[in-house]
Design a protein around this nucleic acid. Structure first.
Lengths: 173, 173
DNA sequence: TCGCATTGGTTGACGCGACAACTGAATTGG
DNA sequence: CCAATTCAGTTGTCGCGTCAACCAATGCGA
């Protein structure tokens, strides 16, 4: 154990404290709005959105877990609840009988289509609209660098949980 | 309901996805290291550190909750566990008999003193050391802007959970 | 000084996520 | 072609955080 710890400078400490506060408060804010307006956790929303954007609206559990930065047990629990609510369906994969495929139902598509505008509004109000275009780019780079450390193998880091030109639902519906 | 939702641009979506992934993965990483090496949640660590740095190593529950971005019920539960472990003590405030004061014990001071180097090491390895000084400044500004939205009244946003020149424990012990 | 709203804090119930254990299917090595 | 390992997924248990309800003390208005 090295006794020569490099303690944090004032600037480092200040930035770190704010990042920690952000990481603490952001998830709660997202959950609060979505639960209130759509009865969905932010994680559930992201999972449903990922399915909606997938080919055939279907994805393997493992891949869905990767795309949503979740462990497999966690996804399994969430999938059971979503299935009980009729928002997704699960069925064994025909080519690999170990695997399970999940598909979003019409009810699920409808729900996220209804939830999307309010969610995007919240994301804009709480984050995107308070940043300049340069800051947006900086955030992209900074988060990318940190994620490279937190998820070295890059197996996680969902590539998409939003939309550039409207929800996939609109195109797929 | 305004039907004219401003969907996310490609740049916005990319930055947002990374921020969400960061907020999802960072807390788990911090908890994992601290639990493994010190048997403490990151939240418990922050709370103990706040007490260690407070005058008389004592703070009102309400203020401690503010400084740690926590709700009062959450802090109350955590405080009970910490007290059962002998890391803090609670006693009624003499001047306001509604209030409760919390004090960190010697055992608590010892524990965070032991835990601090490893934690700082993790913070450096996963975040600080992968950012340039400019990025550190950018992160400070970006997180500040977002926090102003998430916590408009500014009641939360702990001002310190780290140290510029070594842990307060060293000075106070 | 009485009545009422507010503040400070605790408690209990519930839901979600982590972890470990487990099942069954596929792969690999001899 | 069988044994051992790995992979995909589910389930049960436990701990933590949220919410609502609650109690006690304080402040405040009339």
């Amino acid at each position: 154990m090295s006794a020569d710890t490099r303690w944090l400078s004032t600037e480092e400490s200040a930035a770190w404290v704010r990042l920690v506060a952000l990481a603490e408060l952001l998830p709660g804010a997202l959950d609060a709005q979505l639960l209130r307006d759509a009865g969905l956790t932010h994680f559930e929303y992201v999972a449903l959105m990922a399915l909606a954007e997938a080919p055939d609206r279907t994805m393997r559990m493992t891949e869905l877990a990767s795309r949503t930065n979740a462990t497999l047990p966690r996804l399994s629990h969430v999938a059971r609840r979503l299935e009980e609510r009729g928002l997704i369906r699960r069925f064994p994969c025909p080519t690999d009988r170990r695997a399970t495929n999940a598909t979003i139902t019409e009810a699920g598509l409808q729900l996220i289509a209804d939830a999307a505008p309010g969610h995007v509004e919240t994301v804009r109000a709480s984050v995107l609209d308070v940043l300049t275009p340069e800051q947006l780019e900086q955030l992209y780079a900074i988060a990318g660098a940190v994620l490279a450390r937190l998820d070295p193998d890059g197996r996680l880091t969902a590539t998409s949980c939003q939309f550039s030109e409207g929800p996939a639902v609109a195109r797929a519906g």
